[in-house]
């Protein structure tokens, strides 16, 4: 599903990570500064590796040896950022439809209804992002990413900006997403408890290197 073998020099920091994953939810675990965000940004195409390859769903999206670098917008990925990044000039419904419109996909009312129901955001559709709580924003961001029909969903600390109570509010939605949405995910977090609940496979990063790889057991 996802194969990564990349090197990247970022100032003093060097990242060299190799892993491949078939899991439904691959947890990228590590302290802040371990290189998790750089790694996920390379998978997204927002950052270009100095050397190496990235293969998503059988398609090589990065291969420095043969000069391949598929731009972000053609990678058919979804990305949920820590800070939601909803478009402030669009209401929730328009935010949700953005990815479908950009990818020129036909409207899929059934899938939209399913995602809206799954994330429980039906009551928010007319609102502007400025009028949403942090947790609501993150749920809309999840829906927006899902509705672009990605083949891989990247989540970079999606609960990182929320307080404990809000985290507990969102976690069940993420579990439902994992079990029902049928999209493989890469989930970045520095919180072992979060990953224990969500991940099916763990890639542990430390100072830019993969130190262990395996089931959720490696977290203990």
């Amino acid at each position: 599903m996802l194969r990564v073998d990349v090197e990247k020099q970022l100032g003093e920091f060097s990242l060299h990570a190799t892993f491949s994953s078939e899991g439904r939810v691959t947890g990228l675990f590590g302290a802040s500064g371990a290189g998790k965000s750089s790694l996920i940004n390379m998978i997204a195409g927002l950052l270009r590796p100095d050397r190496g390859t990235i293969v998503i769903d059988g398609e090589t999206v990065d291969d420095t040896a043969s000069g391949i670098h598929v731009p972000t917008w053609r990678r058919r990925i979804g990305y949920v950022f820590q800070d939601a990044r909803l478009f402030p000039h669009l209401n929730v419904a328009q935010n949700l439809d953005y990815g479908r419109r950009m990818n020129r996909l036909a409207p899929d009312a059934a899938q939209r209804a399913r995602v809206v129901e799954l994330l429980d955001i039906g009551a928010l559709l007319d609102r502007r992002p400025g009028k949403l709580s942090g947790g609501e924003r993150q749920r809309v961001a999840l829906g927006r990413a899902l509705l672009s029909k990605p083949r891989l969903l990247l989540l970079d600390e999606p609960l990182g900006a929320l307080d404990e109570a809000r985290k507990l509010e969102i976690l069940p939605y993420l579990v439902r997403l994992r079990d029902e949405a049928n999209v493989p995910m890469v989930y970045v977090s520095h919180d072992a408890a979060e990953l224990r609940q969500l991940a099916t496979q763990i890639v542990m990063l430390r100072q830019g290197r993969v130190t262990s790889f395996g089931g959720v057991k490696v977290l203990t």
Partner: peptide
């Protein structure tokens, strides 16, 4: 915020559409 433009890109928008 340029990060909004990045978000648009991850949703499949080509630069001129962004």
């Amino acid at each position: 915020d340029r990060r909004l433009e990045q978000a648009a890109e991850t949703l499949g928008a080509a630069p001129f559409k962004v």
